[in-house]
């Protein structure tokens, strides 16, 4: 197992107008570790993800992937370097079939997107791999329907299947179980657990539910008003006064 961090942010900052959404966050992520990122709504968790995966460009600071600076690199090129992201707000190809949504991810991984003379249906192995990803999230029986026709929970599962299909080194989950019914949640949590068991994957998980954090996380970092305010062992961090105040204290009673 490589000893150095696979992903690092150094003083990573983004400002929107006068507001600092992510404030000089320095953090390293190591293979085989699942890091939970917690913090109240608006703390900058998703923005931090967007900076790492390239959907937003940093105002200052650096993102390093495998030790190389990728701060100015476009999102697709970061994906090709092993960074995989599942989105918080469901982000699919609505009119394409569930299977095609996943197959496109497998095809991106295989790097044959520019082949324009053969037929996509000739690549049976890609379709098989897409089917296998659907099976892992228990969506095989919905393969033929358009993604837009899925229930919210199933769309979240599809989002995860697409991430699996990319076979990334670094998995970024943004509240993967939000809005899922109680019986669907274990499927996703078991899956994240299984990825973790592979041992060489780096997992970042934005999560609001403290029971999920306690079950899965090896490490917890806390963002508050864009800044990293705590970092360490889950039990320790969750119990620390700063989290009690910054996170649990701010959390509205009806959330």
């Amino acid at each position: 197992m490589p000893s150095g961090p696979v992903l690092e942010t150094r003083d990573l900052t983004i400002r929107f107008g006068g507001q600092v959404a992510v404030d000089a966050v320095t953090c390293a992520f190591h293979p085989g570790t699942l890091t939970a990122i917690v913090g109240p709504n608006g703390a900058g968790k998703t923005t931090y993800f967007n900076l790492i995966s390239g959907q937003l460009r940093a105002s200052a600071g650096e993102v390093l992937l495998h030790g190389q600076r990728v701060t100015r690199l476009a999102a697709p090129l970061r994906t090709r370097r092993g960074l995989g992201r599942a989105f918080q707000l469901t982000n699919l190809f609505p009119d394409l079939s569930v299977l095609e949504n996943v197959r496109l991810a497998v095809q991106a991984r295989a790097g044959i997107g520019l082949h324009f003379l053969g037929l996509a249906s000739d690549h049976a192995e890609l379709i098989d791999r897409a089917q296998a990803c659907l099976a892992r999230v228990r969506l095989s029986d919905r393969a033929g329907v358009p993604a837009a026709a899925l229930s919210h929970g199933d769309q979240r599962k599809l989002e995860v299947a697409i991430l699996l299909a990319l076979e990334p080194q670094i998995f970024m989950f943004d509240e993967p179980t939000a809005g899922m019914s109680v019986d669907e949640v274990p499927v996703i949590l078991d899956l994240i657990e299984a990825i973790k068991q592979e041992g060489d994957k780096t997992i970042l998980l934005v999560e609001h539910k403290m029971d999920v954090v306690r079950r899965l996380a090896d490490r917890v970092i806390v963002l508050h008003q864009g800044a990293l305010v705590a970092d360490g062992d889950p039990a320790e961090v969750v119990a620390s006064p700063i989290v009690q105040e910054a996170y649990l204290g701010v959390r509205p009673a009806n959330a």
């Binding site: 476009a74 697709p76 190809f93 609505p94 009119d95 394409l96 496109l104 997107g113 324009f116 053969g118």
Partner: peptide
């Protein structure tokens, strides 16, 4: 073709196609 499928993906959700 694989290329044509990517075009459809771009039509459906360009942001997502980039993320793939």
């Amino acid at each position: 073709s694989p290329f044509g499928r990517v075009l459809q993906a771009i039509r459906e959700n360009e942001f997502r196609a980039e993320a793939l």
